[in-house]
Design a protein around this nucleic acid. Structure first.
Lengths: 176, 176
DNA sequence: GTAAGCATGTAAATAGTTACATGATTGG
DNA sequence: CCAATCATGTAACTATTTACATGCTTAC
């Protein structure tokens, strides 16, 4: 049940319309909790009905018309409660690792090219994170808020670094 | 659409009943594609109906009776085709990183304890992987199949190592 | 006035989770 | 016989994805 909380977080950072949220999910928040516009619109509807957010008065409630939302106190409380809740790490579900394991049984035809392809994808994702780091967290942040945000970004950087080094090792290993 | 392929892989490694598969998903295959027995039974039914697997003749088709499955040629072909197919990495969806980002907005109450809790979880998962490494891949494997399986396990080891180092850094950073 | 793109949505299908139901086997 | 455990399954719900529908705004 993380999507509503991802949306609340994004809206607290800045009130937005559905499409703006979708854009931001493609960039920042979505790096750690991805979503599509369909899911977002549906969830916005539910959150509004539950009294956690509301449409800004200016907005005309018509189709095709932009509609901006802001978080209500109940929404902020809900989010704070969720943050304090313990939650175990999700079990891993990774198609590439699974395919490699399947390849051990039916043959690794094409694996090498696929690993190289993933390598470039992860390299470009890492470059994107590095740019954000340069732009927003250099020099190192001092406020508590920004230190937390920087740690999240470090998570992304370290995760991509893990993939790059694992892929590099695997490619070398299969070549040899 | 990875679950059926995870099941085909597991059944090729060793024909099994639904419950045996469930057990194996709790240990080996499930480290990279987790699942529950409900999903597994449902998927076994579909795979059987699609002619990719079949129940071993010995099995009585009654409730409460053990029913073993083996993979048919069509199932092996299906799996080989899937392995050769390109598939992009999944977008990340991690509740802990998301909660940390939310904490930047509503306050990091309780974050420290939660990070420490995750640290011990990841440490124990790493220890489990290390045991498997010791047991099955020491000395280093020489066959192609086992080299692939070892790379998959290395993926798990490196992933846990990433989490441990990120969590350790984050805990230190929030303390300071 | 019409095409391109902005903006919000609906519908249907698939995937995954949670809770419960039912029968078989074995040890006391 | 009764409890525990093995074993298979159903039902209902929630989450996610994919495909499509509709109205508005702006630039030509």
């Amino acid at each position: 049940m993380s999507l509503p909380h991802a949306i609340l977080t994004a809206l607290l950072e800045k009130p937005s319309s559905g499409l703006e949220l979708t854009r931001r999910f493609d960039r920042s928040i979505g790096y750690f909790w991805s979503s599509t516009h369909q899911q977002i619109y549906r969830e916005l509807g539910k959150l509004e009905q539950a009294g956690r957010i509301r449409a800004l008065p200016a907005a005309v409630p018509a189709r095709g018309q932009k509609k901006e939302y802001e978080v209500l106190p109940a929404g902020r409380e809900e989010l704070a409660a969720w943050v304090a809740l313990p939650e175990d790490p999700r079990p891993v579900r990774d198609p590439l690792l699974l395919r490699m394991r399947a390849a051990a049984v039916v043959g690794a035809e094409g694996m090498d090219a696929e690993l190289r392809r993933h390598l470039t994808l992860h390299e470009s994702q890492l470059a994107e994170y590095r740019e954000i780091e340069e732009r927003n967290f250099t020099p190192a942040p001092t406020s508590d808020e920004d230190r937390l945000r920087y740690l999240v970004l470090r998570g992304g950087i370290d995760l991509e670094t893990f993939w790059i080094s694992w892929l590099t090792r695997s490619i070398a290993d299969l070549d040899g």
